[in-house]
Nucleic acid binder design. Structure first.
Lengths: 179, 179
DNA sequence: GTCTATAACTTGATAGAC
DNA sequence: GTCTATCAAGTTATAGAC
């Protein structure tokens, strides 16, 4: 598999425009310009906008594969790592999630919606394995969703700091292992 | 103040299209048709789309006033009522929040963004009053955000039921009053 | 593989009749 | 207050040269 191709740059530009400037800013013109190709050049790689979305969906699936593996291997435990990654950090995974979340709110791109559902379900199953109390597991998922809500709208309470996340993790862990 | 005017129907139609079908579906044409007026008629009441957004922002502010009063008066306590209301129930407030959340992701409507921030800050202050532990307060806000994230994307784990919310509330309450 | 040019359509907004 | 045109700008997509 070749790397850093023009195709990849187009996908990068698409994701970044979506995540940073919103759905409406991510026009084919804007994506082409940001990627440094012409619109015709873009449309050679992705014949329609839907195929562009499809490319992003593929990328999400791959990044989630990596993420799940990383969560399983985390020495501190699945929940801690899961919540730490959930706080917006502008990683490739983060950007891809926000980009697809923007698209998922447009009824024209159901694949974006189902891709996010797939991801959510994989996370849910993993957290359910790692946590004893199902209510705690639910809270963990909702806190993670809340963190993504924040990066989607940039509106939730003054961004969650690393220390706050640590405190939240500690409290939820205490909650799952009743003394 | 007159009620059920054409102006109100236009605002209803706008909110419903935004919340149910997304940003792109809420065109002036679609809003006018759903409200049962012509586009010219719509534009008599709201001269630009920005004024239409402004109307929704006003409505949110009013509904949040009511909501805050209701939370303060809740016999079961602020947190319980707050989280119960946060789960999607298609109330006027709920619909208005989702509608403005959709708009807030478009850089053309900063008022939508600031209106949601105002709301969030009022809720945050109220919850901070009612809860002893600041970490618990933060979790409460994030769980609420998570619930709205779910109704925004219709993607989070199989919708939260009334019973689940009750269990979550009970657990968070226990957490705030250490034995 | 990449480009320019342009077609076909949609959207927000204006003009002016009633 | 409400309506019917109509316009100007922007968007996806196609055609065809290089």
């Amino acid at each position: 598999m070749p790397r850093a191709s023009n195709r990849d740059s187009v996908l990068d530009a698409f994701a970044e425009l979506l995540a940073h400037d919103g759905d409406r800013a991510a026009t084919l013109d804007a994506v082409a310009e940001k990627a440094g190709v012409s619109k015709g050049g873009l449309l050679y790689h992705f014949g329609t906008k839907e195929q562009l979305v499809g490319g992003l969906v593929e990328r999400l699936d791959d990044l989630v594969d990596e993420d799940i593996a990383q969560l399983r291997a985390a020495p501190e435990g699945v929940v801690s790592e899961f919540l730490r990654v959930s706080v917006a950090n502008d990683s490739p995974l983060d950007r891809t999630i926000v980009a697809l979340a923007r698209l998922a709110q447009d009824q024209r791109y159901p694949e974006a919606h189902t891709a996010l559902q797939r991801m959510q379900e994989r996370w849910r199953a993993l957290v359910a394995e790692a946590v004893t109390d199902p209510v705690v597991a639910r809270i963990v998922m909702l806190v993670s969703d809340g963190l993504y809500f924040s990066s989607l709208l940039d509106v939730a309470a003054p961004e969650t700091s690393r220390e706050e996340i640590d405190e939240i993790i500690a409290m939820l862990r205490r909650l799952d292992t009743p003394s």
